[in-house]
Simulated scan of single mutants.
Amino acid sequence: MKIEIWSDYVCPFCYIGKRRMEKALELFPHKEQAEIVFRSFELDPTAKKEYDLSIHEIIAQKYGISVEEAKRANNDVAKQAESVGLTFRFEEMKPTNTFDAHRLAKYADKKGKGREMHERLFYAYFTESKLISDHQVLVELAEEIGLDGDEVKQVLSSGHLEEEVRKDEQEASRLGVRGVPFFVINRKYAISGAQPTEVFLKSFQKIWDEENSSSPLKPLAADGGGLCNDQSCEM
């Protein structure tokens, strides 16, 4: 079962949804058969690398609400994060552009460290309040999970992997993805948003049953009315 996840590292519900999905997989009987693939998505491709405004002020301006209203909304999100074991520090958060973070994640994928890098980027932004557009910060995060710092510097200082990030974004547009997190399973099923763990688990089981049915046919009536097999006939 292939699970593709479109998400962005400054998206709070992407981190919450990721954790809920992971908890569902822990309970899923066939979790060893699940392949997770992270896809790139930028909530705001025009975002600056640094802002003089707080995340509360940015959200207030974006949605036309007061800063106090933005704070209350963020506090509600923080409580949802806490319910799945995450700590969101909105007061110290550093809003930024995530394009280079996505390029780093693509590099980590190629080195077999994709899942570790995705988790480290989310944690760095939401919990440690790191500026995840800063190349030195990205190098340090990459080194922490075992990647070569010099190689990462070369990737970030060049245009390497830009096309792969853009390809994911174009694919999201083709699939009709309008918001993240967005989960695509076996390129046939979609789950939108940070759904409860129970929803993920039920969806995984339903998809598994449908995809692994021994027959492509769905019965429309119960057994009865007479049936013969190679051994006998039942009346």
Rank of each mutant, 00 (worst) to 15 (best):
E151I: 02
F200D: 07
Q205Y: 01
P95F: 02
V10C: 06
Y123N: 11
Q154R: 13
H135L: 05
D148A: 15
Y107C: 00
P95D: 09
A101R: 11
E128G: 10
P45Y: 04
G112Q: 07
A78T: 04
D148N: 15
G193K: 10
V10Q: 01
I58P: 01
E82L: 07
L131Q: 01
G149E: 02
C228Y: 12
A78S: 15
L27T: 08
S54T: 15
P95Y: 07
S83P: 00
A73T: 07
Y125G: 02
R39Q: 08
P216K: 06
R178A: 09
D8C: 10
Q136G: 09
L201H: 02
S214E: 15
E234D: 11
N74H: 15
T96G: 06
K23H: 07
K106A: 00
R166W: 08
I207P: 09
Y51T: 06
G17K: 01
Y9A: 01
R20P: 08
K206T: 14
E151P: 08
L131N: 14
A105V: 07
L156N: 00
P196K: 04
H30N: 11
A190F: 09
M235P: 14
F90T: 04
L138A: 08
H160W: 12
G176H: 05
A81W: 01
L138E: 00
H30E: 06
Q195M: 08
G179I: 06
E162K: 15
E26M: 13
S133A: 14
Y63L: 13
